[in-house]
């Protein structure tokens, strides 16, 4: 390592930077709406930044900026060249660059949310990019999705099942979804939301607050996992 290496990602003190929270999930499941809801709920008490990974241009970033939930300058968009999962998993350079740009411009920050582009059930965030990750499904994809699993559903730190208000209309059985998710997730939490009805996604916001609190004050995120 060079004598004057100053790549913050390598900083030995994990507390010297914001918690990086990845939010992934299929197209249309409500990732951007969840990011907006978290900004509404957490914005008053936390210093936030948001990085979006868009399929086309800067659509999600523009949506968030228009929503007025956060200073538009604190929202950066990363373009992924047809491969949204590559940018969050295999080649995270552009996302790290965006996260650190936000921290340099507005830091110190408490939380930087990295929203992935809509992708399939196999897309998860690299641990080199996200300290913690949420996977978002919606009920209209069918109540079999949790049973099908995939790394997003099984390994995310929190699974959010959104659009519960649509369940009766699409014939989705929330009990089945809850039971199947529990079976493949080895006890990791699952939350059901309807962000259209609860614009602050309060259950999820509470979970995120707990994670951010652990990161900054207790030095660990999960049982037995010590922050480097």
């Amino acid at each position: 390592m060079g004598a004057h290496h100053d790549d913050k990602h390598d900083a030995p003190d994990g507390h010297g930077r914001a918690l990086r929270l990845g939010i992934g999930g299929p197209v249309g499941s409500g990732k951007t709406a969840l990011v907006a809801a978290l900004c509404r709920s957490l914005g008053p008490s936390m210093r936030l930044g948001v990085v979006t990974n868009d399929i086309y241009t800067t659509e999600d970033a523009d949506f968030l900026r228009r929503a007025g939930v956060l200073d538009p300058d604190r929202i950066l968009a990363v373009q992924t060249g047809c491969c949204p999962h590559t940018a969050i998993r295999d080649d995270i350079a552009a996302n790290l660059d965006a996260v650190e740009t936000l921290e340099e411009r507005f830091g110190p920050l408490d939380l930087v949310i990295v929203e992935s582009g809509g992708d399939n059930l196999t897309a998860t965030f690299s641990r080199g990019l996200a300290d913690s990750q949420i996977f978002v499904l919606d009920v209209s994809g069918g109540d079999k999705v949790p049973r099908k699993g995939g790394p997003g559903v099984t390994t995310a730190d929190l699974l959010v099942v959104n659009k519960t208000d649509l369940a009766p209309m699409v014939g989705a059985d929330l009990t089945v979804m809850s039971r199947d998710a529990g079976a493949v997730r080895d006890g990791r939490p699952v939350l059901f939301t309807s962000i259209r009805e609860d614009g602050g996604a309060h259950g999820v916001a509470e979970w995120v607050s707990g994670v951010v609190d652990s990161w900054h004050h207790h030095g660990h995120l999960h049982d037995g996992e010590v922050v480097p």
């Binding site: 060249g81 491969c83 590559t86 940018a87 295999d90 080649d91 995270i92 350079a93 552009a94 660059d97």
Partner: peptide, 12 residues
Amino acid sequence: SRLPAGGHAHSG
């Protein structure tokens, strides 16, 4: 091309 340095997002 798998060198993780952001090249995949550019089409030249």
